[in-house]
Amino acid sequence: MIESILSLTFLAQVLRMFTPYYLGASAANFSERGGVINIAIEGFMIISAFGYAFFTLTFGNPFLSVFMTLILATAFSFLYALLTIKLKINQIVTGVGFNLLMAGTAKFLMMFVYQSSSNTPAIQPIPGISLLNSIPVIGKAAGDYIIIFAFVLIFLSQFILFRTRFGLRLRSVGENPEAAETLGIKVRLYKLYGVLICGVLSSLGGMWLASNQSSFSDGMIAGRGYIAIAAMIIGKWKPVNIFFACLMFAFFEGLEITLQISGSFLPTQIVQMLPYVITILVLIGFIGKTSPPAADGVPY
């Protein structure tokens, strides 16, 4: 068993699993840094995974499909912003509604377009980067644009949030909107930016999963949107910490898959629930103090 964990294949597996987690967790982070809780990451991933599958099957061009799916996700983001920012409706309840809406729409369209309740026909994946793909094992498994983007995002989001004027303003809106307003910052506009970035990033995570499985299937997101939120909490709303949290969850998922194949002493269900147990332990305060943005979830 140790050999199967130390192998390059396992490492490649972990890097791949890391991608949707980190995209989802960063998505949640951008939204919450602006003070808007979005528990509909799961739904955004579902609708985007379906969207990518649908657009590639219709147009046959992966890059065009990514573009179209991003437009779709952005449309949903605007709707989410309308309800939570403009109308100031409770963000949790809206998130629950969005999850139901996006999961339901994906199921309905899959049945209507492909007459299947389980999966779409096989699709074209997002192409790999040929230069990277020539590296054995790792490059072949983990060398596509979205994976690379996920890793760049670690530094990019750290930079944007803590080194740019935009990031400073976004954070101030999430910490103390009244103060931000008196400084002349358009609070709701920045909240909207946070929600839109959230939609785009979680959408990329969903698309990547569909691309990686070469189809969209019912239940394929399997709670990853919620794990992403858990990773953000464990990472204490900081991009680099979130990276380590996601890496840990990806390791668990890789382990779960490996254990399923090689048989093990640990039941897979126990491995499955670890991310959630750890999140609660972190919240209790066993692993350092957590401090969400002060005005997180409070409508303004």
């Binding site: 969005f98 139901l100 809406l101 339901g104 729409t105 309905f108 309740s117």
Partner: peptide, 11 residues
């Protein structure tokens, strides 16, 4: 029409 339309309706 696929029964999943009701999931959309409920949401």
């Amino acid at each position: 029409v696929p029964k999943e339309i009701m999931l959309v309706f409920q949401a």
